[in-house]
């Protein structure tokens, strides 16, 4: 079994109103000098294979087909 983590983030230039709100909330808690917050998503997956190349290819296909909306999001794949 291979464990993997997929991280999906907004592309540069895509407005992130949630990130902005979080930034405002941190500032109101007294954390000064925090900027550029972007909210994203993390998926932890377990793949029933030992073939790392296949796992990586499958994960890429999963990202392209479902996990990320590539119109607005980028993704990275990490195998453990």
């Amino acid at each position: 079994m291979i464990k993997a983590r997929v991280t999906v983030t907004l592309k540069n230039g895509v407005l992130d109103p949630q990130g902005k709100a979080i930034e405002g909330a941190l500032s109101s808690l007294g954390f000064d000098g925090v900027g550029g917050i972007r909210q994203g998503k993390v998926f932890d997956l377990e793949l029933a294979t030992a073939d790392r190349a296949k796992a990586e290819a499958d994960l890429k296909a999963m990202c392209e087909k479902l996990l990320a909306n590539t119109v607005i999001e980028n993704y990275t794949i990490a195998l453990s």
Binding site: L15, P17, Q18, V71
Partner: peptide
């Protein structure tokens, strides 16, 4: 329709949240 790729673009969370 956007998620299915039948139309261009995407819909995001409202700016007001």
């Amino acid at each position: 329709l956007l998620e299915a790729g039948l139309l261009p673009g995407a819909l995001m969370r409202n700016a007001s949240l």
